[in-house]
């Protein structure tokens, strides 16, 4: 019995140490974000500041750059992307899963191919076309390339295939029109899959740097990662207290959401494994 107890204690100790190492950057980030400038440069490792100045660094960070604006851009862009992704993908996935029509194999082949191709591959031509059409540096440029998500189609198709045809037959016999089948049966059943996908999509696009870096020039259109880049390279570059406060502000929304709904987040993000 005592051996089992010792093994459990050892296990906890190893886990605790590992967790401490993984969390250390977060702890330091928060710690330095509330330290006054002179304490950052003293070369001491205290986690808490000796003189607490409140959230001065946060106020200054928000003064230096409109971080709230970046967050808002992030919300707008992620919401728009997600909206169109589901709007386009769900009907397509339903047709692929449940309807037989000419060209279905071809369409599914296109979806599988598109699943392999990330934005980094398609970026150059899309950039050139947007540039020629004068569409760069806009919400449209941030959102449009992601509206048709092969991954969403693939996921929803898998999901719809698990819904038995008999469920739809039963609804028909119960007197539902095709429209009420969609509204009363399909939409509610899609919700769990859509939630998982939504988390995956929002996390991916909130954190994406590559594409916004290419298409955005105007500071007021900065997404959160672009905001961090601008913050770091600008006048705040060596004001580390403010920089850490800025990093906290940018990371906080997703981290908070994650802590509130951990299971759903882990479920949603690990969906990405299918995609790579």
């Amino acid at each position: 019995m005592s051996r089992g107890w010792a093994a459990a204690a050892l296990r906890l100790a190893v886990l605790g140490l590992a967790a401490a190492i993984f969390l250390l950057p977060f702890v330091w980030m928060v710690s330095f974000s509330i330290k006054p400038a002179d304490e950052i440069f003293t070369g001491r490792l205290d986690l808490l500041p000796s003189s607490f100045e409140g959230f001065l660094n946060y106020a200054r960070a928000l003064e230096l750059r409109p971080l709230h604006r970046y967050l808002l851009n992030g919300v707008v862009v992620c919401a728009a992307i997600l909206f169109f992704q589901i709007l386009f993908a769900a009907p397509c996935a339903y047709a692929l899963a449940k309807l037989r029509f000419r060209g279905r194999e071809l369409v599914f082949g296109l979806v599988l191919f598109a699943l392999l191709v990330p934005i980094q591959v398609t970026a150059i031509p899309i950039f050139l076309v947007f540039s020629t059409a004068g569409l760069l540096d806009s919400y449209f440029a941030l959102v449009a390339p992601f509206t048709a998500s092969a991954f969403a189609i693939f996921l929803f198709r898998q999901f719809y295939r698990t819904i038995p045809d008999d469920l739809i037959h039963a609804a028909r016999i119960d007197g539902c029109s095709e429209l009420s089948i969609v509204w009363r049966i399909i939409v509610p059943l899609t919700l769990p899959a859509a939630t998982a996908f939504a988390i995956f999509s929002v996390v991916a696009h909130w954190n994406d740097l590559f594409w916004p870096l290419i298409v955005i020039r105007s500071p007021e259109l900065n997404t959160p990662p672009l905001g961090v880049m601008a913050f770091r390279s600008g006048e705040a570059g060596d004001r580390y207290g403010e920089l850490m406060a800025g990093a906290v502000i940018i990371t906080a929304p997703l981290v908070a959401a994650f802590l509130l709904a951990q299971r759903k987040f882990i479920e949603g993000i690990s969906l990405g494994a299918v995609k790579g």
């Binding site: 038995p164 008999d166 039963a170 016999i173 049966i185 059943l189």
Partner: peptide, 12 residues
């Protein structure tokens, strides 16, 4: 009215 082998109850 029809009763299905899988029952086809609406899970939600």
């Amino acid at each position: 009215a029809m009763v299905f082998q899988s029952y086809a109850l609406y899970p939600h």
